[in-house]
Write a protein that binds this DNA or RNA. Structure first.
Lengths: 144, 144
DNA sequence: AAGTTGTTGACAAACTTACTCATATTTAAA
DNA sequence: TTTAAATATGAGTAAGTTTGTCAACAACTT
């Protein structure tokens, strides 16, 4: 039930990009300094977000990173799935990365207690994170 | 955001103990066989549950394990906390195992976006798991 | 006393996390 | 056209976690 550092850093980095959205691009060192993130690790994270189509980058002088999409069109659920994988506590209740559990004694039965319980947990988590936009998220920064 | 095998096995083992509650004690091999759990690993798990006061054990012939508490008085949240640790996605929003995050730029500020978001996730998860009793959980088995 | 069970601690392979490093590639400016 | 500044990429890695296994021991029943 844990959020990795990768996702935490990714979310915090996206705050900076959201705050300067359509105003400026940010270089990794600026993001790293403002959010206290190890720069080389941050790079990997930004790259993953780029490959996933959330962020654009430019090399060379005057390079840097920027959001591609509007902050209100990016959800925390998307980001965490990109960086950490599925939100579901167990893969047999994942909607985005379902996998059948084969060694489970309830595998082919109509009801599995674990599935029932964890299914509701999954729904609760994604109900929150898939409706929590980066815009809302970054707004928590301003008044802090 | 993942449930470990340890917790999954622990929960499944507790189903068996709940089903025979006040009727019989169960030996590890019976539990292991019914729920397809590696027996040596199961032993460790049952021991943790015993130390936490959920389960009792007897050695020697006719030995085995049994629930100490009523199934309706045990919640999935308790079990998972024993086996996997805190439910909170990040320790700075945990109520049972709070830890201050020190390298976070929002550490001493009144608001942290990550805390806000993950706080609601934690509340949702514990809202479900701390009110989901082992009795409810095991009931999913019967009709399956 | 014998046999069956749980208890304990050590061990370990495989995997994941959270990085670091070296090197290449692209871009802008001198 | 060289050079400085920036991202891109892949490899590597130390430490920790997960998911077990194994062996010796202790306690209980018959």
């Amino acid at each position: 039930m844990k959020l990795s550092k990768k996702s935490e850093y990714g979310l915090r980095a996206l705050i900076e990009l959201a705050l300067t959205h359509e105003k400026a691009t940010l270089q990794r060192q600026e993001i790293a300094a403002r959010q206290h993130i190890p720069i080389e690790f941050l790079e990997q994270i930004l790259l993953m977000l780029k490959r996933a189509g959330l962020v654009s980058s430019r090399r060379g002088m005057k390079g840097g990173y920027a959001l591609i999409k509007q902050p209100q069109d990016i959800t925390l659920g998307q980001v965490i799935r990109i960086l950490d994988g599925p939100l579901a506590p167990i893969s047999c209740v994942s909607k985005t990365a379902y996998q059948k559990c084969n060694d489970c004694p309830y595998a082919n039965k109509p009801r599995c207690p674990v599935q029932q319980a964890m299914g509701t947990v999954r729904d609760a988590i994604s109900g929150i994170l898939d409706h929590y936009s980066l815009a809302d998220f970054a707004a928590g920064h301003r008044r802090g």
